[in-house]
């Protein structure tokens, strides 16, 4: 019974989750999702998507479609576990931390169960209240569906939105390789850090949280260092 519910949920997700009204650079020819060769947007974009696209252009966002340190982080819109749309552009003016996670991955389980994620959120909020944490699940596996991800956050008392990227377009756009894999975007929308959550490993808590470090340096107006580290953990279980 459980299995069939999960299957139904997955099928439902696949059909209902609209991934990405990606920001298009003013000077970019538009519209290929990196690594897929597929159009980033359906040519039959619905009215809502067109509205969002217009708004993004109005905001003047300049994304070339792939995430690079020091450049504008590509925008995306995904559904949260409670069914709402979440767009990166909505968080403009705040520091955004994207953490790729997968409830099945022991490295994610470690950073969640040992308090690493909770401490990170608390410490970041101690630096600035203008910080938003978002969990991104790009796994295509059925166990990582809506209820699993929501349940995972609830179990670990993490009051942060989680978005589902079942077709993996956003994960590939950001180059997310592992779970966990963290990205820090500053208040002006520029990607400032990507890599490991800390200097630990899948079985051992780290002593230096790179995300909090980056947030502190951003708020102090300093160069982020390190700005890239090697993320550890499971590979992101992309659709193909």
């Amino acid at each position: 019974m459980k299995k069939s519910i999960a299957t139904l949920l997955l099928a439902g997700l696949a059909s209902t989750l609209a991934v990405g009204t990606f920001a298009i650079a003013d000077d970019a020819p538009a519209t290929q999702a990196p690594g897929t060769g597929a159009p980033a947007q359906d040519t039959k974009t619905d009215k809502k998507d067109k509205k969002e696209e217009k708004r993004e252009k109005k905001d003047g966002e300049k994304s070339k479609g792939t995430a690079k340190i020091g450049e504008a982080a590509p925008n995306f819109t995904l559904k949260t576990t409670d069914g709402k749309d979440w767009s990166l552009s909505d968080a403009k003016g705040k520091i955004v931390v994207l953490e790729w996670c997968n409830p099945e991955c022991p490295a994610c389980q470690r950073v969640t169960s040992d308090g690493t994620v909770a401490s990170m959120i608390k410490d970041a909020n101690g630096v600035t209240k203008d910080v938003v944490f978002v969990m991104v699940n790009s796994s295509a596996r059925s166990q990582s569906s809506l209820d699993a991800t929501a349940g995972y956050l609830k179990e670990h008392k993490l009051d942060v939105p989680a978005v589902l990227d079942t077709d993996g377009k956003v994960g590939r756009m950001y180059g997310a390789k592992t779970t966990p894999h963290c990205y820090v975007i500053d208040a002006s929308g520029v990607l400032r850090y990507e890599g490991a959550i800390d200097d630990g490993n899948p079985g051992k808590k780290g002593t230096n949280n790179y995300v909090v470090n980056a947030i502190k340096q951003i708020k102090a107006g300093e160069t982020v260092s390190p700005e890239q580290t090697r993320a550890y953990g499971c590979s992101v279980k992309y659709k193909d």
């Binding site: 099945e104 991955c105 022991p106 490295a107 899948p202 079985g203 499971c234 590979s235």
Partner: peptide, 14 residues
């Protein structure tokens, strides 16, 4: 000892 072993999924052992 601690290790992470993977196939389609990964598991940590100690």
């Amino acid at each position: 000892l601690m290790w992470m072993t993977c196939k389609e999924i990964c598991l940590v052992g100690r």
